[in-house]
Design a protein around this nucleic acid. Structure first.
Lengths: 223, 223
DNA sequence: CTATACTTGGAACGAACGTTCGAACGTATG
DNA sequence: CATACGTTCGAACGTTCGTTCCAAGTATAG
């Protein structure tokens, strides 16, 4: 090997095993990789992971086919980088927001709002994350699956907290996964001109999952 | 594994070319095509439409590559046949069930139960329908989209009926699409040993969307 | 039986796939 | 200027893709 193949995740990190919290200068490499990831996200969103070819990505980025491989070692790893960045970001934002809220019901609303707001700002990334969640195999797939599991367990915990604090009687697993379905499915139908912004939609969805449509318009005062 | 009935292909039938309506005897052609569709559904479910190759289908069906093309003219049309049959079936079952129920709330519960029961009996078909809903282009895609639109409008109508009959105040579109998300997403998580049968799950989901988790355990008596 | 239509598969087509190689470019430093 | 290294690309690799041709098989009708 003449020149070392780049694209090892953290290339020349001088320090720190900190993972994504990679402080230090944003190098030219990082910036260019970020642009490629953005374009690749759009292509994967439009044609699907399997349906998108490396030549499609070459066209979308304006970079040659071979040039792309300087930034990542395989198409699969490219999908991994996209999914990991997207999922890590939404998870971090969620954790930060939850620190400010203690009321169990409001915490569930925070979960919904966080998911929807991130969807609005990165629709394509969230679709690639949802739609291609079985496309990664082996270790790459299980690393994403681990993040998903943490995201799920947070949501499950929110449901259990609410149930406990109010002495309610419902299946937290079903509730959490139903809520997941609601918010993950919006990529198939959301239209900004019809469905309003994230806050409006989050409130409606919060009303549904918390109070149901029978009580949906006016959430009842807590006892 | 149930065999998909005929009435789908009508290639060169000896009987009249009137339409694809299910008249006429179930020919050998129809039976064989049904078997192929069953196997293809399984392969598409496992590897995705783009990820599954004609050679995978050849292996799964035990038929040669060229032999498959006697039954359908392209891989895309094969996906179309699967989706059309699945969607048509679930839609017909829904319409039949709704004829017996008049109470708006119960009609929504019928919708949920119908969807879940069909999912239990044809998980793979419903996953292929949900997951590959953007894989078909042009006329094939728009024919499936038309069925989807009818299915959606039925659900939307159920929501509006409930809202009107009870003088409620909620967004029927958001409610219908949220419910769609709930029931379409189960293919990513359903586990029969944990989540019970269709009736139990349908009741829980009905409680959530109608009464919300805050009132979920015991649906309140209607006024 | 022969004749006829329906059913199958071996072999191959051109195209597109993900990936690699080695040479050349650009730029910042000595 | 020369050196070194990070960056880019044209061209090609071997493989697999969806699809087709055509001859051979098999059931059914006369």
């Amino acid at each position: 090997m003449p020149t070392l193949p780049a694209a090892l995740a953290s290339r020349r990190q001088k320090t720190v095993p900190g993972g994504t919290s990679s402080r230090g200068p944003v190098t030219r490499f990082d910036r260019r990789l970020g642009q490629i990831l953005d374009h690749a996200t759009e292509v994967f969103c439009l044609k699907g992971y399997e349906g998108a070819s490396m030549r499609d990505l070459s066209r979308a980025t304006g970079m040659s086919l071979a040039g792309l491989y300087y930034y990542f070692e395989s198409k699969e790893r490219l999908l991994f980088l996209i999914q990991k960045h997207t999922f890590t970001t939404i998870l971090e934002k969620l954790k930060a927001r939850l620190e400010d809220v203690t009321d169990p019901e409001q915490r569930i609303r925070v979960f919904i709002l966080n998911h929807l707001q991130y969807f609005m700002s990165n629709q394509q990334g969230l679709k690639v994350l949802s739609h291609e969640d079985e496309s990664l195999k082996n270790s790459l797939g299980s690393e994403i699956a681990a993040i998903k599991r943490e995201y799920y367990h947070i949501c499950l915990g929110l449901m259990e907290d609410l149930r406990r604090s109010r002495g309610l009687d419902f299946n937290a697993r079903t509730a959490a996964l139903s809520l997941f379905g609601m918010v993950n499915w919006i990529y198939t139908w959301y239209n900004s001109r019809v469905d309003g912004n994230a806050e409006a939609l989050a409130e409606q969805m919060g009303n549904i999952v918390l109070n149901g449509i029978v009580h949906g318009g006016k959430p009842r005062k807590k006892s």
